[in-house]
Amino acid sequence: MTENISIKITNPDSDEAFPILEELSANLHLRFGSDGRNSFTDWENNNESFVFVVAEMNNEIVGCGAVRPINKTIGEVKRMYSKFSRKKIGQTILTFLEKEAKKIGFTELVLETRVKNESAVHFYQKQQYKVIPNYGKYINRPEAICFGKTLK
């Protein structure tokens, strides 16, 4: 039986987003020693180039994700998280974000994850993201692996 997942655009500072973002940060800190919060501080409310979503399943927030602009044509995927594995939560969030990114006018999405985060690396490859040279603050950071995807 496939679970029904709904995606909702919201504000990362909202009460509904707070618990899932805290869980994501705690998970990242436990696994990698850094919670990733410092890479998500430039959020601009009421800016149509920024999209933050939560995923809900059975009246529970079970995931989140965001896109923010790198420039006018390239968006960056941030704060992707799924509370449960193998329920298509991440795939549903990412598909939604890709559609929203196209509406904004982005023609490409990029993202970074840790090389050690093998499940994320596999997930993005399965979603047709290709390894790209590290960009921005990830240049010369061997623990980082960057991905990109052209939106069609």
Rank of each mutant, 00 (worst) to 15 (best):
N46L: 09
N46S: 12
N46F: 14
N46I: 10
N46V: 11
N47Y: 09
N47F: 07
N47L: 04
E48M: 10
E48P: 07
S49I: 00
S49W: 09
S49K: 12
F50M: 02
F50D: 07
F50V: 02
F50T: 06
F50R: 05
V51K: 05
V51M: 01
V51I: 13
F52A: 01
F52Q: 00
F52M: 05
F52H: 03
V53D: 02
V53W: 00
V53C: 04
V54R: 00
A55Q: 01
A55H: 00
E56Q: 04
M57Q: 12
M57W: 05
M57K: 08
M57H: 06
N58H: 09
N58I: 05
N58K: 10
N58Y: 06
N58T: 08
N59Y: 14
N59Q: 14
E60A: 04
E60I: 00
E60V: 00
E60L: 01
V62S: 06
V62Q: 09
G63A: 02
G63L: 01
C64T: 05
G65I: 00
A66Y: 03
V67I: 14
V67L: 04
R68A: 08
R68G: 11
R68S: 12
R68K: 13
R68Y: 09
R68T: 13
P69R: 09
I70F: 13
N71D: 15
N71R: 07
N71I: 07
K72W: 10
K72S: 14
K72F: 13
K72Y: 13
K72H: 14
T73H: 15
T73Y: 15
T73K: 13
T73M: 13
I74Q: 14
I74A: 07
G75K: 03
G75P: 08
G75W: 09
E76F: 09
E76H: 06
V77D: 05
V77Y: 10
V77G: 08
K78F: 07
K78Y: 06
K78C: 01
K78W: 07
K78L: 01
R79M: 05
R79C: 07
R79E: 06
R79S: 09
M80F: 03
M80D: 02
M80I: 12
M80T: 04
Y81F: 13
Y81L: 03
Y81D: 02
Y81W: 05
Y81K: 03
S82A: 11
S82H: 08
S82M: 02
S82N: 10
K83H: 15
F84A: 10
F84H: 15
F84P: 10
S85L: 13
S85W: 13
S85Q: 14
R86G: 14
